[in-house]
């Protein structure tokens, strides 16, 4: 099952990467994407506070960034 999942992820990534060459915009079409609020991690402080809360209260971590260790939070 684990091997199967890893294979699916790998194939998806390769497929996505090869499809990427036809996606995207020209440099002069980046007006909206260039906004601070369009950055993928536009509120890093909120994100780190949230990660700390959910890391302490749930069994999952990481995804957006490193899962890490970091605290003995209860």
């Amino acid at each position: 099952m684990k091997k199967y999942k890893q294979a699916v992820i790998l194939i998806s990534l390769v497929a996505l990467t090869s499809a990427c060459s036809s996606l995207g915009v020209q440099p002069w079409e980046r007006d909206l994407l260039a906004k601070d609020e369009m950055a993928l991690n536009s509120s890093p402080i909120d994100a780190s506070l949230d990660d700390h809360i959910y890391f302490s209260k749930e069994s999952s971590s990481g995804g957006r960034g490193f899962a890490g260790g970091g605290c003995g939070c209860n």
Binding site: L23, L33, L40, S61, G63, F66, A67, G68, G69
Partner: peptide
């Protein structure tokens, strides 16, 4: 305890209005 994390990411601009990110992360504790 020690933790080793690996993180692989793909960020893709889809259009003038859309951006996407795909990550795979692996962690060994």
């Amino acid at each position: 305890k020690t933790t080793i994390d690996l993180l692989f990411g793909l960020t893709q601009v889809i259009s003038r209005q859309t951006i996407m990110q795909f990550n795979y992360s692996y962690s060994q504790v």
